[in-house]
């Protein structure tokens, strides 16, 4: 296992003075094997990005804190083990980028608008590796080319001179350039066209087969989860709702939320009617759904009963398959 998350709880303060908060991640536990890809799927606002950011300890300071749990990361050889939660602030920079790296949903977060993209990647390399600048340039160009960007021609471009999709790929090159043990990819292909998206997914697959990288792949797109991942976590309002192999989750969802999600995808099936209205889960996910005391999905569930007005535990359905619902079967 290169990543083991145990009982991770992250508080998000809505009013710091009054100490009002909700758990934006609530007792989250799972592990990722070496070279395994686990997808985290769920609607926007369900806390996926927060989970990803917390793994890097990049969750916004002051308004949020990791209140319990551990995040154990080890390199693929198993020589180095750290608990990210326990690290001091000044120890984090030695770990970020090298042991665990992240592709952010928002490219503006990690790209500096006033530095040329080539130089940004070179800086990232030189921060961790002893290398001649010339060689680092070559590595940077190589990784840009892996992302189908003309590395030589675009080396001196500023981020604003690139299209949205190109910026995203520069960021992916930057996250991969140090070949980390764990990669957190937060919606890396959301802004990309089909062809480039396929390419990026393929490159992430390649990294896991060749470099044994473990990947936590955050996405809202079930068809992408199906294409890339071995296992899937269905995430809602800070909690794992269902967990299992990706094929099982998509072909045979058990949790009412997973069932609803799979029904709202626009597909490419043969008997497909254009402009047919798609299935929509009633209501919206709001921050009050994160509050404890009842099933987080209660307000929008088609199967709810009185029994759902308690904290619902994650129940084992079969080997390797879990769901958080009292009304299955």
């Amino acid at each position: 296992m290169s990543l083991i998350i145990n009982d991770l709880t992250v508080k998000l303060y809505t009013d710091f003075k009054k100490k009002e908060f909700f758990n934006v991640a609530d007792s989250v536990s799972f592990g990722v094997q070496n070279g395994e890809i686990i997808a985290v799927v769920g609607e926007s606002g369900s806390g996926k990005s927060f989970l990803g950011l917390s793994l890097m300890r990049l969750n916004p300071p002051y308004i949020s804190e990791i209140s319990s749990g551990s995040i154990l990361i080890s390199d693929s050889g198993g020589f180095e083990k750290v608990d990210i939660v326990k690290l001091k602030e000044n120890q984090l920079s030695g770990v970020r980028g090298r042991l665990i790296s992240m592709i952010f949903q928002d490219p503006n977060v990690s790209l500096n608008p006033v530095i040329k993209i080539g130089e940004q990647i070179v800086e990232a390399i030189l921060a961790h590796k002893k290398m001649k600048k010339k060689d680092a340039c070559d590595v940077a160009i190589h990784y840009l080319e892996l992302m189908r960007i003309d590395g030589k021609a675009r080396f001196n471009s500023y981020p604003h001179e690139l299209s949205g999709g190109m910026r995203q790929r520069v960021m992916i090159a930057m996250a991969m350039v140090l070949e980390p043990a764990v990669l957190v990819a937060d919606e890396p292909t959301t802004a990309l066209d089909v062809k480039t998206s396929l390419q990026v997914l393929a490159l992430i697959e390649k990294m896991r087969f060749e470099k044994n990288v473990s990947v936590l792949f955050i996405t809202h797109d079930l068809s992408i989860a199906r294409n890339i991942s071995d296992k899937t976590i269905v995430f809602y309002a800070g909690q794992i709702m269902e967990y299992g192999s990706t094929e099982d989750i998509i072909n045979n969802p058990m949790h009412p939320y997973s069932i609803s999600l799979t029904k709202s995808v626009h597909g490419l099936s043969k008997d497909y009617a254009p402009r047919e209205r798609l299935f929509v889960i009633p209501g919206t996910l709001s921050q009050s759904d994160f509050k404890s005391g009842k099933c987080r999905f209660y307000n929008r569930c088609f199967k709810k009963t009185k029994e759902c007005l308690n904290e619902i535990p994650l129940l084992k359905l079969s080997s390797g398959r879990f769901a958080r619902c009292v009304n299955i079967q």
Binding site: L198, Q199, L201, A202, E205, I228, L268
Partner: peptide, 22 residues
């Protein structure tokens, strides 16, 4: 490229394509 979209097909796209696309 949308018809080829499938779990087993993904890896083949890693080396495909032309870097000069941009």
């Amino acid at each position: 490229s949308i018809l080829a979209y499938g779990p087993k097909n993904i890896l083949q796209f890693a080396d495909a394509g032309n870097i000069n696309i941009n």
